[in-house]
Design a protein around this nucleic acid. Structure first.
Length: 923
RNA sequence: GCCUAGGUGGCGGAAUUGGUAGACGCGUUGGUCUCAAACACCAAUGGCCAUUAGGCCGUGCCGGUUCGACUCCGGCCCUAGGUACCA
């Protein structure tokens, strides 16, 4: 074989890896483990474009590298197979989502196979597979059967809670639970009906059924989680979302808020992702206190504030329009105005509220609260800048210290009281947390932090308030009114939810005639013939959301076909958690938060040994498309080249990037592209049609999609792998431009040539390498190893190129050098590496070899060429032996003609010599 | 508005701890080979001035620290992503 024939080589080795199960990863305690994981792909109908494999290539390089470094590497792949797009497609075509999903997965696997990944396919998972979703349902059952004990700070079986109820009733329970819980004694508990007990337990369960205000998307016919809604529109499809109260399953993720926040300190994740999770959790430390209401001795208003030190600056209270007290306290004169306001504010969609932040609205209720310290009357207002869902749905407004309160007070002419030094009401509110407190009775003269402490003490003394921590994060709604998801292992008897027996799992999806809601508005499962238990009790009709299956899959990969357990504890103890996780940053507050939540829960119950699922996370940057344009002269079928377009009235049209090379349009291909271009005429420049270009998202509609299959067909998988890495840092967003790919392809051909003579025969020499050759290869080994350890793949590709260029120049074909080169290249370009390795006479795969160690000895230099600068500007280079004394260097430098010319009679103020770095002459 | 990341040739990018700015690759130009083209190979390639030697300018902008700044500090501008009445 003379030429570098990537087609034959790549097919051959892909088959070899498959036949030999080269990447099978099972527990092997004699080796250290390494778990590298890619984010679960959703198998869409469009297949992979060139941007998708970027992260997979990076993790594959690390996996292959770690393997030949002596690690036992788990590198699996599978599919997040439940989801909305397949179901939308099913609605349109009537095809079962399982069938289309199967087809899409087949296509994905074929595409992935062509790139030559070292996946252990024996570990493949699909979330829609009953063998898998059985265990997703099982986790749900554990959540249902658990409560969060804040004393032990972990989840515990619900039976321990029932024991407490039986002995002490509701008293003394320190649990993560609903905002309002039923109060009862032990005796009362014992007398309760089954239904009453069930209702109470739902206030504590980690998976619970409750009336919830949800994001309802009428077009999709389902509820959406907060992070699935963007600007009041559904993330998928962009349909309007409204707020609606519905009975829904939720997961009590708020129980884990503190641990989710703390855990961020212990993991190596990109700062922006951590920051997003911190904001999402939204911890704020403050105080909760009650205001009595004038004339309503039985009522009081609870507010949450982070600035209890400004309590003497309160000039009004504001209630969310949804607040339950509004109706009770509004006096007769204000009744109509308040009612109208509340009606309008309540019906405003989330979207309206958001797009209209600037308009200040509110109504006075006519009622007054009483200041706990001064006893003064404080007007009570309702305003829609107060959110029902946060804190208590009521705020103590301090216009002098809060910009929103300031704007509101100004708008309605309410009074303001300054309670902090350095506040100037002409300039606006002063939200600073630094400064001395004034006009505040017993708090006067204190710093903010001290004033807060003292105020809370005083409130506690009066038993009307206490220090409190609030979280922005809400419990996660877990029901979807859709077909293509995990069914809940739940049935209802006398309106009480019960779990199925574990032996009845998996609960499989029933067949339905259509994937649409029923006429009564029930979810699609309502169409199934017999969606009941054997005894005839109705089963839950909602299904679980897309993130259910992806919240724990990284554990199942360790032991994917275990039928009796979610996964073996022993195996999980070996693999622990994911060492390297690569994926997009769009999962920052969804998947990555839920996966952490479930991991903590599985740990609390003793199933998993780790608190965090992913030790290190890297967000790969999106590969953007590079679109090309033609310019049609208006009302004609003439197209004018890019640089001449200003002379005409033109319309810019996207043109398929596959018929454009180096921005030059293939005229013939353009005419054949679409019928309406068949008689197109062109106005050329220099005989060519130059297209315009722009960087945009890669998408079908912009005709800028590049398919990896096409690249592989033309250049091979090794070239694709190298080129994707060569494009730039992994984390960075960058445009795809096929033009540069020639460079890496040439590199592989040069690499091939090193092993062959001019006649194309494989030809290695067993001669001892010389010093120069040893230096080249060892410097390369060192640099590449450093690069890979800091995930800088683009620079290692450059290093390979330099190495091959240098060895070519040295005409080196020595086995001792080139075999080392094969090994260090093999994680990047595995096919050519395997082929050359085999040609070298090795019987086993390069994946079973040992990564070469570099030897510092060979890198030692006898001399160093110093750049000599005059006043910081490099002027001349002078070579010195490394052990030359400084004195001697100084003399030579000052004698140098060029240096002399620059000094030109001026005095040398200083001469700096940094060994093996630089010499600087200061004049 | 706030948070985070970033801004370096015609293009993708390199410079890891403050020490030769522009490695490597693409593109472009010139050349060798060829009937010709492709491939391959060689050379040049930040801008400006200069025949050469060489010089001046140059990492978004302004200022500072330093013998020395793409790198550190202060202020500003721009781009991308996230977030937004969270009390």
């Amino acid at each position: 074989m003379a030429e570098y024939n990537f087609r034959a080589i790549e097919k051959k080795w892909q088959k070899y890896w498959e036949d030999n199960q080269s990447f099978l990863a099972n527990v092997d305690k004699s080796k250290p483990k390494y778990y590298s994981l890619d984010m679960f792909p959703y198998p869409s109908g469009a297949g992979l474009h060139v941007g998708h494999p970027l992260g997979y290539i990076a993790s594959d390089i690390v996996s292959r590298y770690k393997r030949i470094k002596g690690f036992n590497v788990l590198h699996p792949m599978g599919f997040d197979a439940f989801g909305l797009p397949a179901e939308q497609y099913a609605i349109q075509t009537g095809q079962h989502p399982a069938a289309t999903t199967e087809e899409n997965i087949k296509r994905y696997k074929e595409q992935l196979r062509n790139i030559g990944f070292s996946f252990d396919w024996s570990k493949e998972l699909r979330t829609s597979n009953p063998d898998y979703h059985k265990w997703t349902q099982w986790i749900f059952m554990q959540l249902f059967n658990s409560w969060y004990n804040k004393d032990s700070n972990k989840a515990e079986p619900i039976s321990t809670l029932i024991e407490k109820f039986e002995s002490n009733g509701y008293n003394g329970i320190n649990a993560a639970c609903d905002e309002y819980v039923t109060e009862f004694s032990a005796d009362e508990w014992k007398d309760m009906s089954e239904k009453e007990k069930s209702d109470i337990l739902l206030q504590y369960r980690l998976a619970f059924l409750a009336d919830t205000t949800v994001n309802w998307c009428p077009a999709l016919g389902t509820v959406l989680a907060n992070e699935e809604v963007k600007d009041g529109l559904s993330e998928r499809g962009g349909y309007p979302v409204i707020r609606k109260t519905m009975k829904q399953w939720s997961l009590r993720i708020t129980a884990y808020a503190e641990r989710l926040l703390e855990g961020l300190e212990s993991i190596d994740w990109p700062e922006p992702v951590k920051e997003m999770q911190r904001n999402w959790i939204g911890k704020s430390i403050g105080a909760e206190l009650e205001f009595r209401i004038d004339g309503h001795d039985d009522l009081n208003i609870k507010v949450f504030t982070t600035r209890v030190d400004t309590i003497f600056g309160v000039t009004y209270l504001a209630l969310a329009p949804e607040h339950e007290l509004i109706e009770k306290i509004t006096n007769r004169e204000r009744e109509k105005a308040v009612k109208d306001y509340v009606a309008v504010a309540k019906n405003r969609s989330e979207r309206d509220r958001m797009s209209d932040v600037k308009t200040i609205t509110g109504e006075f209720t006519g009622a007054y609260a009483i200041h706990p310290f001064t006893g003064k009357q404080i007007p009570i207002w309702t305003a829609d800048y107060v959110l029902a869902g946060y804190g208590t749905g009521a705020v103590m407004a301090v216009p002098a210290g809060d910009t929103r309160d300031y704007d509101f007070a100004r708008h309605f002419g309410l009074p303001m009281v300054i309670t902090q030094e350095g506040t100037n009401l002409e300039e606006g509110a002063n939200p600073s947390k630094v400064g001395k407190v004034i006009n505040s009775d017993f708090l006067n003269g204190l710093e903010v932090a001290d004033a807060q402490k003292l105020a809370i003490e005083k409130l506690e003394e009066m038993s009307i308030g206490k220090g409190k921590v609030n979280f922005r994060m809400r419990d996660a709604i877990f029901s979807r009114q859709r077909y293509w998801g995990e069914p809940f292992p739940v049935y209802f008897k006398d309106e009480i939810p019960y779990l199925l027996e574990e032996s009845e799992l998996p609960l499989r999806l029933p067949e339905v005639d259509k994937y649409l809601p029923t006429e009564e508005g029930d979810p699609p499962l309502g169409r199934a013939d017999k969606w009941t238990t054997k005894e005839g009790y109705p089963l839950e009709k909602s299904t679980m959301p897309g993130w259910a299956g992806s919240s724990w899959y990284f554990f199942r990969y360790m032991d994917p076909s275990n039928e009796g357990d979610i996964f073996s504890k022993e195996i999980q103890h070996y693999w622990e958690n994911v060492d390297l996780y690569i994926g997009g940053s769009e999962h920052a507050t969804g998947h990555l938060l839920y996966a952490r939540f479930w991991t903590k829960f599985l740990k609390d119950l003793g199933f998993a040994s780790v608190e965090e699922p992913f030790k290190k996370l890297i967000n790969q940057g999106m590969i953007q498309g590079r679109s090309n344009f033609v310019y049609r002269v208006n009302s004609s079928n003439k197209y004018v080249s890019h640089n001449l377009r200003k002379e005409y009235d033109t319309t810019r049209l996207h043109v398929d990037v596959n018929i454009v090379h180096n921005d030059i349009l293939d005229l013939e291909a353009f005419r054949n592209w679409r019928p309406d271009f068949s008689d197109a005429e062109f106005i050329l420049e220099d005989g060519k049609y130059i297209c315009g270009s722009e960087v945009e998202k890669m998408s079908k509609s912009k005709f800028n999609v590049v398919n990896p299959d096409d690249i592989i067909e033309r250049f091979g998988a090794d070239t694709l792998r190298l080129y994707e890495m060569f494009l730039g840092p992994l984390e960075q967003f960058k445009p795809w431009n096929t033009n540069g790919i020639d460079g890496v392809y040439k590199f592989l051909k040069k690499l091939w040539k090193l092993f062959h003579d001019s006649a194309g025969n494989f030809n290695l020499s067993d001669e001892k390498p010389n010093k120069q050759e040893l230096k080249v290869i060892h410097a390369t080994i060192k640099k590449v190893e450093e690069d890979i350890e800091r995930f800088s793949f683009n620079t290692s590709v450059s290093t390979f190129m330099i190495c091959v260029n240098e060895l070519t120049a040295l005409k080196c074909n020595k086995r001792e050098i080139l075999e080392k080169l094969i090994l260090i290249v093999s994680p990047y370009a595995p096919h050519i590496a395997e082929e050359l390795w085999a040609l070298c006479g090795h019987q086993t795969s390069v994946a079973e070899a040992q990564y070469p160690a570099y030897n510092e000895e060979y890198l030692k230099e006898d001399a160093f060429e110093y750049p000599v600068s005059i006043n910081g500007k490099m002027r001349v280079k002078l070579s010195f032996a490394v052990d030359t004394p400084k004195k001697e260097i100084e003399e030579v430098v000052l004698e140098n003609e060029i240096v002399k010319k620059w000094i030109e009679g001026k005095a040398v103020k200083k001469l700096i010599i940094v060994p093996k770095k630089i010499i600087n002459v200061v004049i």
